[in-house]
Design a protein around this nucleic acid. Structure first.
Lengths: 218, 218
DNA sequence: CGGCCTAATCACCATCGGGTGACTTTGCCG
DNA sequence: CGGCAAAGTCACCCGATGGTGATTAGGCCG
């Protein structure tokens, strides 16, 4: 694969109906984007050689030539998503001072929920991770875990968690809750009775998670 | 559908290699069990007419005849799972007195986590719910939500949550966290750095969730 | 025995999936 | 111009899938 995922990303979406351009880089980019789009729209069920080729508007053979098959394409996409946390979850404090570890956790919840809600592709990947285990997936999950850890580390600044708190476990729980809520929202619009549609619903949900996190770190 | 899901359940697993028995009820049961097993083992990806027939040791035609196709079979399975919460999550207090709402939440977390960890089929269904939305799925999710609400109601007894606490949201968050952790454990064995393999790992995770829940309800 | 209902199977279809080898087009360079 | 490598396409294979109509096999009852 002669191009990095970053370079592939520069392809400005899938051009409408451009006739064969005989430009390897661009075709590669179209395939890449088609793969991402399919994954984001229909999940891994919709991710197949034929489907990608159809969407990219080229012959499936090129997928094998340029990416070494579906797995290669998936790797390229995964590579790009490796830095997802640092790229999509901002580190600003939203103009607030984070005085306590609880403040930090609240902000973490807000930012992570927003980032996830804004990214269909990442959501699909997360669901995928729950459906099966494969090397690709394991790598992605690993990279994300590290990203989250680093992100917390940077946001934390000089704040320190209360002694005796199992930060690893507590952080995992908080992230888990947010993730499950966001994923469930997409397909069912609610979770065990808690509606998750409007912006207000989300404010309520996020407040609940934040309250718990804050209380646990008090 | 001449048999209820409950009756179908009585079929004692899939008989090894019994030759055609010419017993409609039993064959129906075998198909039913095969469907459940496939779903539990391989998730919805493994759930197909041919696969079920193969596993049940009969012709796929019978699936159409007895259940009206895959959808019908799925309905039968779903019907049986409707009462899952009340059937699989016990209501005992484990010999403890639940003195506070926090105690209740802790017990809730323990019991729900255990029940889910012990039931592959239910886990698969939960993942499925995150993957796509369909009438079947929506119905199942609904039934589960109600079951959980009732279960909490019964466990609660005369305990009352602190004023001002958004119990619906908080409960949803707690359940969400547990669910995500259990689902993630199966495929990756950990979640954002928190290991989820040994019994000890689980004790730690459950303690973290319980700590948060308890703190939020204090 | 013969008939009949029904459980169960068989044979077949169209379709789609991943995957591959041979082919055609295009642009470039001497 | 001729030729050559690269970009792209075509035609095909194979296996598996969902789905259906016709057919067989077995038990029961008069």
């Amino acid at each position: 694969m002669t191009a990095t995922a970053a370079e592939l990303l520069e392809t400005p979406a899938v051009p409408e109906k451009e006739l064969p351009v005989r430009d390897r880089a661009q075709t590669q980019g179209r395939i890449f984007q088609a793969g991402r789009a399919l994954l984001a729209e229909g999940g891994f069920q919709a991710f197949g050689v034929n489907a990608v080729a159809r969407k990219a508007g080229c012959d499936k053979q090129l997928i094998y030539r340029y990416f070494g098959g579906l797995d290669g394409l998936l790797d390229a996409i995964g590579e790009d998503l490796a830095g997802w946390v640092t790229q999509h979850v901002p580190e600003d404090q939203g103009g607030r001072f984070l005085l306590t570890y609880g403040d930090l956790m609240e902000r973490l919840v807000e930012l992570y929920a927003d980032a996830l809600r804004a990214d269909p592709l990442m959501r699909r990947i997360l669901v995928w991770e729950l459906s099966e285990s494969s090397p690709h997936i394991a790598r992605m999950a690993d990279a994300r875990a590290k990203g989250i850890a680093q992100w917390i580390e940077r946001m934390r600044g000089s704040l320190t968690p209360p002694k005796g708190a199992d930060t690893v476990a507590l952080n995992a729980v908080v992230i888990a809750a947010v993730q499950q809520l966001v994923l469930a929202a997409e397909t069912s619009g609610s979770f065990v009775g808690l509606p998750l549609k409007s912006q207000k619903d989300w404010a309520r949900a996020v407040a609940a998670v934040a309250r718990m996190a804050r209380a646990a770190y008090a």
